[in-house]
């Protein structure tokens, strides 16, 4: 029995179909979602979503961050930005990484949320770089 996967970005619905397994990059570690998964709401870190039909990977998508809602029947990914792995741009990743590093350096050391945000952006940019390398 498959699980309904939906990947939406603010601009459009990117993918909506039943799949056998999807691996999403949650902020505290990857989560493999099979049908009948317990209901969860998680935040995502920058990373790759892998969609499986049977044992083969059918889609690989890079997400820059976002949220996911998992119920036994469906998995909804609200992503800030989704790009097929093959189209991830290395130069864009490097530009973002540099910007994120600059933001971290500029962030007030007492301002924890700002620092965390900058670190998160850095992580997302690194994941993007990696994704570009893998493609």
């Amino acid at each position: 029995m498959p699980i309904d996967l939906e990947i939406v970005s603010p601009e459009r619905l990117l993918l909506s179909r039943p799949v056998d397994l999807v691996v999403i990059p949650a902020s505290e570690g990857d989560i493999g979602v099979l049908p009948q998964h317990g209901p969860m709401i998680v935040t995502l870190r920058g990373g790759t979503i892998r969609v499986y039909d049977g044992r083969t990977v059918t889609d690989e998508l890079f997400v820059a961050g976002g949220f996911a809602e998992i119920t036994p029947e469906r998995c909804t990914v609200l992503a800030n930005e989704v790009v097929p792995l093959a189209e991830v741009s290395r130069t864009e990743a490097e530009r973002r990484l540099a910007a994120a590093e600059a933001a971290f350096a500029a962030a007030d050391k007492a301002d924890l949320p700002a620092q965390e945000a900058a670190l998160e952006a850095q992580q997302s940019a690194r994941a993007m770089q990696q994704a570009a390398g893998a493609a």
Partner: peptide, 26 residues
């Protein structure tokens, strides 16, 4: 009540709310 949250509710909410604001504006 059924949902499990990772990380906790407040952290997710703190990220979800600004996003929601932008979505509403969009």
């Amino acid at each position: 009540a059924l949902y499990e949250f990772e990380p906790d509710e407040e952290t997710i909410l703190a990220r979800l709310l600004p996003q929601n604001l932008s979505v509403q504006i969009y």
